[in-house]
Design a protein around this nucleic acid. Structure first.
Length: 121
DNA sequence: GAGGTGACTGCGA
DNA sequence: CTCGCAGCCACCT
């Protein structure tokens, strides 16, 4: 096998991030866990740092930290772009924090598997 | 090859 | 609750 792990890493993050349903949000830890690197949640955010340079579009604004805080908004064009994008999807953001984050949280390692079975059924 | 950085997270004081 | 520290791994200089 080759060292495609590192290369796939970015692709994985982008792919999963694009899987986040509209009006939902995810966390770095959840994505990291799905990538079997739950210990390196930093890498998820790091990958997203270049997400704006990747196509198709990556809804990085749907990814927030474990507390639902928009820690990555600083990497957007404007400090309020991330919040506006979320609000545009019906997500309520207050004080740079996602409201009802608990119920809006989308975990790929859970929602995906569960969704598959649900759709099949 | 080595050192520093970072859109994070968990635990302790 | 707030503050600080350690671990994690890929990218940049």
């Amino acid at each position: 096998m080759k060292k495609e792990s590192t290369l796939n890493f970015y692709d994985r993050v982008y792919c999963i991030t694009r899987l986040i349903p509209r009006g939902r949000v995810s966390s770095y830890g959840a994505i990291a866990c799905y990538l079997s690197i739950g210990s390196a949640s930093r890498m998820v955010g790091y990958a997203l740092t270049c997400s704006h340079n990747v196509l198709p579009f990556v809804p990085a604004h749907r990814v927030v930290n474990r507390s639902g805080l928009l820690t990555g908004k600083i990497h957007f064009g404007t400090p309020t772009l991330m919040q506006q994008l979320l609000e545009n999807e019906g997500i309520i953001v207050e004080d740079d924090q996602v409201k009802y984050f608990s119920i809006l949280h989308w975990d790929p390692s859970v929602e995906l598997e569960s969704d598959y079975f649900s759709n099949l059924g």
